[in-house]
Structure formats: C-alpha cells, structure tokens
C-alpha cells in the first residue's frame, strides 16, 4: 500500500531536483557538442551553460529562473495499491507543486490565460497537468516531473502521405529554424518528433519524446531510429548554434514517437526541450521507499504495443539456452 504522504514527498523532491540538477545524459551530450563546435560565440555559450549547471548544483538554486510549466507524468503499476485513492494522489501532486514553488523557489509562471490572475504557486485551472500511463505486473508508481518553458520551439502540421519523409524533414527544418533564430528555442536541445495519431496525440507523443527520453536512447524500431539519426544530422547541419549564432549545435538528440493515424493523413509535431532539459523521476515502491533517477523510462514495450492484449516479450535467447 502506498500512502499519499510518500507521493507528496517524492513529488516535492523531484520538483527540486528537476529545477536544480542537470541530468547526466544531457550534460554528457552537451560536453560532446562543445568538442565539435567551431563557432567561437557558440562554444562560449555552451561552456557558460556548463559553468551555470555547476553553480546551480553547488548553490542549490534553479539552473534557469524560468522554471517553465511544472507538470507530471505518472506511471501506475497494475499491482500498485494506494492507501487512499487517485483523488488523494492528485491532491498530493498539487500540494508538492505549491510547496516547491515557494521553497525552491520556482517562478510562479501559471496565470489564468485571459484575466492573468494567479495563486502564486503554479497551481490553478488545469494546472499542473498530470498525464497517466500503466505498467503490467509491477506494484510501484513512477512519478516524473518536467519543467519545460511554454512559449517557443514547438509546432504542429497536418502533412499527407504524399508529402513523404521529405515533408517531415522540411517541417523539421522549418520549426528548428523558425525558433532557432536568436535562440528562442533555447537550443541545443533534445528534439522530439510526434508522427501520426490524432492531432492531440501527435502533439503529446512529440512532447513526450522530447521530454521523457534520454540522450542516446534510440527508438526500438530500427527504421525509425535511422530517421532519428538523419534528422539529428540535418538539424546540426543548418549552420546554427545556440542563440542563433553561427555554429553546429542545434540537436543534442532526436527522438521520434509514432502512433497509428488516419489513413489519409500524416500529422507531425516538433518539440524542442531546452538547454536545461529539466526532468526528474521518483519510483515509489509498495513498502513506501523512494528511489530517484533522471531517466523517466516512460516509453516501455507495453506503451508501444500494437496488439489487443498484452504478453510480456520473451527475453532474447542467451548463449546457454
């Protein structure tokens, strides 16, 4: 049984970690880019970012003052049981958001879209978002928070099968260049691409691809993985670096997620996470213990299933089988 106070504690801690500590996969990705960067200003920017992440961790202060729109992704094990219910879980997530906003502190970005009124705690109408998924055969709950800016760097377009892979490439370039100029997208970043689904699923998949997969984690479909590598190279070949300066650092990694779509269409979305790629995950076990990590492990084989039912894939045969 998992108590809601454990959920609140875990949610609060990941709010702090996401705001302050750069995920290691992203840090290593950026360090690799510095070595390849030939633009002097672009290289200066990347080195300054590394200095900034060190300062954030040392001082326990947010890496970026725009702590974005804090939100949650919850994966509930099929065998997990809550002492109270899901309403209590959602309350715990909201309480942790408000407390973290005051104590980290996070910037209280969330306002009513029309009246611009706010509660100064990042909680309000439809905020923070909570997205749900499930995992068979396990009794833990994973909670991930993502702090992503909300203004620039994402776009959606309805393409058609006739537009083909080249159509995706063109739209990918359009989005990176539109928001890459002057660095509005806060590149280099992990770029997520959603292909297919209905319009909202397309946006959701692309955003999750950007925010919930780590650098160096290719799509398990080898042909999609190939396209990911191709798009990454295309982005880094634009000739643009951080802040839109001349350079070669745009895409730290590119992740594509696909969903079955209407037979006549090929909707595509592109999302750039940011230079601080803020994410953190907590696993709450059935005994109430909590483990923290930076890899959300959101896209499991179960999430990517194509079948009606679910049977766990057989492990690959080992040498002594």
């Amino acid at each position: 049984m998992i108590d809601d106070d454990r959920i609140e504690e875990a949610a609060y801690q990941i709010m702090c970690k996401a705001a302050i500590d750069i995920p290691d996969d992203y840090l290593q990705g950026i360090k690799g880019m510095i070595d390849l960067e030939t633009g002097d200003l672009s290289a200066f920017v990347l080195k300054s970012m590394v200095d900034n992440w060190e300062a954030a961790t040392e001082d326990r202060r947010p890496m970026c003052a725009d702590t974005g729109l804090p939100r949650y992704y919850v994966k509930v094990g099929d065998k997990a049981r809550l002492t109270e219910g899901f309403v209590a879980l959602e309350r715990a997530l909201r309480a942790a958001t408000a407390r973290a906003t005051h104590e980290v502190p996070l910037r209280p970005n969330r306002v009513h879209p029309l009246w611009r009124t706010e509660h100064n705690n990042n909680v309000g109408l439809n905020a923070p978002e909570v997205e749900w998924s499930f995992e068979p055969d396990v009794d833990w709950i994973d909670i991930t928070t993502v702090h992503k800016g909300g203004l620039f760097g994402s776009d959606y377009r309805m393409l058609f099968p006739g537009d083909g892979i080249n159509g995706i490439k063109r739209f990918f370039l359009d989005t990176l260049i539109a928001f890459g100029k002057r660095g509005l997208a806060c590149q280099p970043a992990i770029v997520g691409v959603g292909v297919g689904g209905s319009k909202d699923t397309c946006m959701q998949l692309g955003k999750q691809a950007a925010c919930l997969r780590v650098v160096g984690d290719p799509n398990p479909d080898p042909k999609i993985a190939e396209l990911e590598a191709e798009l990454k190279e295309l982005g880094n070949n634009i000739g643009m670096g951080p802040m839109g300066f001349v350079g070669s650092s745009m895409v730290v990694d590119c992740h594509i997620e696909a969903g079955f779509t209407h037979t006549g269409g090929m909707p595509v979305s592109v999302h750039t996470f940011c230079l601080s790629s803020r994410r953190a995950t907590a696993r709450i076990h059935a005994d109430g213990s909590i483990e923290y990590r930076t890899d959300p492990r959101w896209f499991t084989p179960y999430m990517r299933r194509e079948t009606i039912g679910w049977e766990a894939p057989q492990p690959a045969s080992s040498s002594f089988a």
């Binding site: 200066f44 920017v45 300054s48 970012m49 200095d51 900034n52 992440w53 300062a55 954030a56 001082d59 202060r61 947010p62 890496m63 970026c64 003052a65 725009d66 660095g183 806060c186 951080p242 802040m243 230079l275 601080s276």
Partner: peptide, 14 residues
Amino acid sequence: LTTVGYGTGALLGR
C-alpha cells in the same frame, strides 16, 4: 545586451 544560453540563471543569481 543579451543573456547567454538561455539562460545562465544560477550564475546570474549568484
């Protein structure tokens, strides 16, 4: 003047 990055929030906070 432009900030760097964006952004070096922790360095500027210091």
